[in-house]
């Protein structure tokens, strides 16, 4: 007579192996980004309410706990991006004449544009702000 023990996944399964802990860390990067997104939405609302409210929001964002949150969110987004760039060669298979494009090229094709965006977008924003401020003066 059969009497099989049913499988049971306990609540702490993710703590049991480093591979699971790395996975959970990657997924948990969404949490600080979620909080940061809430802060930005709050900022948009305050912007609509006038300059005093917006200045108060800016001061709020510069308070030590919020600076800490933004630092954590920045690290989280960098880590998340890095882990996904590492996984790209598993997903993206680009056939060539003699096989497929090597993984390190695929990773490079993601890392380089991302790094360029990181450098160029803030520069562009800084330049645009300068133009805007210059035009207003």
């Amino acid at each position: 007579m059969r009497k099989p023990l049913p499988p049971r996944q306990d609540a702490l399964w993710w703590w049991r192996h480093p591979a699971y802990r790395r996975y959970m860390l990657r997924e948990a990067t969404a949490l600080p980004l979620f909080l940061y997104a809430l802060c930005l939405l709050y900022g948009v609302r305050e912007l609509g309410r006038g300059e005093t409210a917006f200045q108060a929001w800016l001061a709020f964002m510069e308070s030590p706990p919020l600076i800490a949150l933004q630092a954590v969110a920045l690290l989280a987004v960098l880590w998340h991006a890095w882990t996904w760039f590492q996984l790209v060669p598993k997903i993206l298979v680009i056939p060539t004449r003699h096989g497929t494009l090597p993984g390190h090229w695929l990773r490079l094709a993601h890392v380089v544009p991302a790094a360029l965006c990181w450098l160029l977008l803030p520069l562009l924003a800084w330049w645009a702000l300068g133009q805007f401020a210059g035009g207003g003066a």
Binding site: H17, A19, Y23, E27, L87, K90
Partner: peptide
């Protein structure tokens, strides 16, 4: 699948199921 990826680590024949 949420790309945990551990299946590929443990595969004894290097099949890479996650990929």
């Amino acid at each position: 699948c949420t790309f945990v990826g551990y299946c590929s680590d443990v595969c004894p024949k290097d099949v890479d199921p996650a990929a």
